[in-house]
């Protein structure tokens, strides 16, 4: 297999996985608005998470043999990769704690949110993950221009997501009266739960955007190559992790449960 074929195969796999994810997201939405089967939503979220972790975050690389000297770039990348995954494991406990909080406080009700808007921001984040995957694949094959282009698209989509959540969604939710729950008791702790979960996630999107900008800038200066691009890989894994969290937060906030 030639180098170009290898690269187009990798791009092709990214497309296929994206289609799976898109179909599953649509199915999730359909299931939620029609017959509210929570178990199906949970299964779909787990399948989506597995796809992202395997094909976009390449979790299997943790198992890769890192032959060579302890000071070689490959060995150090293996060490860095292990450290990053441990950090994500740690971070996952924050989001897990937030999910526990959501189901403890709201049980099987969900906040008054615009489900269509939720689907739109979810789609934006998912598409950004797709372009992130293309960017990393390009860099892994030494295509710097491709990386810069795709990462720029990812950045823009991530920024749209952030604006969509903080400046559109939060404002709409406020108009629905969720903010009022800070001060009045009529809608229970819905507002607190909603703003905390989306806020913590938005904070991670924000740090992810900074990370992408730094990596983009360094790639522009030529700091990375096909063999040496740990920074790119780290930013990619982190960005997909932010998407991974949303795979669980989206159904937990927008789909699961009855309107109170």
């Amino acid at each position: 297999m030639t180098h170009t074929q290898d690269k187009s195969a990798a791009f092709g796999l990214g497309v296929v996985i994206f289609i799976y994810l898109a179909v599953l997201t649509a199915l999730e939405f359909f299931v939620a608005v029609t017959f509210e089967a929570i178990s199906i939503l949970v299964v779909i979220a787990l399948v989506k998470a597995a796809l992202v972790m395997y094909y976009y975050m390449h979790i299997y690389q943790l198992n890769a043999e890192n032959e060579g000297d302890e000071n070689s770039y490959a060995f150090k990348t293996g060490t860095n990769r292990f450290g990053l995954w441990l950090f994500l494991l740690s971070d996952a406990f924050v989001f897990g704690g937030l999910l526990v909080m959501r189901f403890n406080l709201l049980a099987m009700t969900r906040p008054h949110l615009n489900q269509t808007l939720g689907l739109i921001v979810t789609a934006v984040l998912l598409i950004s993950s797709f372009f992130m995957n293309r960017g990393e694949t390009a860099m892994a094959h030494g295509d710097r221009k491709g990386f810069l282009r795709n990462t720029a698209i990812t950045f823009v989509l991530g920024f749209i997501f952030l604006i969509g959540v903080v400046f559109v969604e939060w404002r709409l939710a406020a108009e629905e009266g969720l903010v009022a729950s800070f001060g009045n008791t009529s809608v229970g702790p819905q507002g607190a739960v909603f703003y905390m979960m989306t806020g913590m996630h938005a904070f991670h999107v924000f740090t992810g955007l900074i990370f992408l900008a730094l990596v983009w800038n360094n790639a522009r200066k030529g700091s990375f190559s096909a063999e040496r691009h740990w920074g790119v890989e780290a930013a990619t894994i982190y960005w997909h992790f932010v998407d991974l969290v949303w795979i669980f937060f989206y159904p937990a906030l927008y789909l699961i449960g009855k309107l109170s």
Binding site: M101, L105, S181, G183, T185, G188, P189, A192
Partner: peptide
């Protein structure tokens, strides 16, 4: 004033 643990606000 987010009422996570405030029973008066449903926490």
């Amino acid at each position: 004033g987010m009422g996570f643990f405030d029973p008066a606000k449903g926490g």
